Computed example of a mutant assay.
Amino acid sequence: MAGQLIISGDDAHRIMRIRGSSTDVTLNRVKLINGQIGSDLSNGWGAIRITDASVVINDSEISGNFVKDVRGAGIFIRDGELEINTFG
């Protein structure tokens, strides 16, 4: 997709952590790929960990992220809110 920001965890790192009770974040047209956490006990998932924050993700892709050997581990939310919107 043209104009999309691509951020990779290089199969070695979580890509993003968003936290804070007064935190509002909107991500537009991003591709978050190949994030990794070594264990499901490592406080979250491969692409994004959201804690006490409100996040909106628009027209984006989250793929190829994993925890240890568990594929599809893209987003972890604890006491936060997430809205995902796709535009065709």
Rank of each mutant, 00 (worst) to 15 (best):
S22N: 11
V70L: 04
I77F: 07
G9L: 09
I48R: 01
V30K: 01
I7T: 10
L27A: 11
R29K: 15
N65Y: 04
N65Q: 04
I57K: 13
V67G: 03
D24R: 14
I77W: 02
A53F: 00
R29S: 12
G46Y: 09
G74Y: 00
R19F: 14
R17F: 00
I7D: 08
I33T: 09
D40A: 14
T51V: 14
L41D: 14
I33G: 04
V70W: 03
V30Y: 07
G46V: 07
I75M: 11
L5S: 14
G74V: 01
D10A: 11
I6C: 06
D40E: 15
S63F: 02
L5I: 04
T26S: 06
G9T: 01
N65T: 04
V25Q: 01
I7C: 04
I75H: 10
G74F: 00
G44E: 08
I62F: 01
D11C: 03
I57S: 03
V25T: 10
R71E: 14
Q4N: 09
G44Y: 13
I77C: 04
D59Y: 08
K68L: 13
L41G: 10
D59T: 11
W45P: 01
D52L: 15
I75D: 09
D59S: 14
D10G: 08
L32I: 10
N28W: 01
G74M: 00
I57W: 06
N65K: 04
D59F: 10
S21G: 00
G9M: 05
I18R: 02
V55I: 14
R71N: 14
V70H: 10
G64Q: 01
W45Y: 09
A47M: 05
G44I: 08
D52S: 13
L41I: 08
R49S: 12
Q4V: 09
F76N: 08
G74R: 05
D69H: 15
G46M: 13
A53K: 01
L5V: 14
I57D: 03
I50D: 07
I75Y: 05
N34D: 15
D40V: 13
D52V: 06
V55Q: 07
K31D: 15
K31Y: 14
I37K: 14
I50C: 00
Q36L: 09
A47P: 14
S39N: 11
D40L: 12
